[in-house]
């Protein structure tokens, strides 16, 4: 067994990189929701109330992931 040799090291806050990665998915999701919501509103303006409620519901489900990402460094960080 060869002794492990450190070839590269990272210093600083890895949490910020992690959060950046974690925000990609929810970002795409929120974009899809509001994009499709706007399209639905344009196609059927009379269903505005129902569309808006469902849009915000979907937005909340997506956004939760990004928000858990914000909190996790505080929970598991040193």
């Amino acid at each position: 067994m060869a002794a492990t040799e450190t070839l590269a090291a990272v210093s600083g806050s890895l949490g910020s990189i992690g959060y950046g990665l974690a925000a990609i998915g929810p970002g795409v999701g929120v974009g899809i929701i509001f994009g499709n919501g706007t399209q639905a509103l344009a196609r059927q303006p009379e269903a505005a109330g129902l569309i808006r409620a469902n849009q915000i519901l979907g937005f909340a489900f997506c956004e939760a992931l990004a928000l858990i990402g914000i909190v996790m460094p505080f929970v598991f960080g040193k």
């Binding site: 909340a60 956004e63 939760a64 928000l67 858990i68 914000i70 909190v71």
Partner: peptide, 13 residues
Amino acid sequence: FTHAVRLFANMFA
């Protein structure tokens, strides 16, 4: 859990 975290994390952030 997510029901509570959603509100908490939004206001926290």
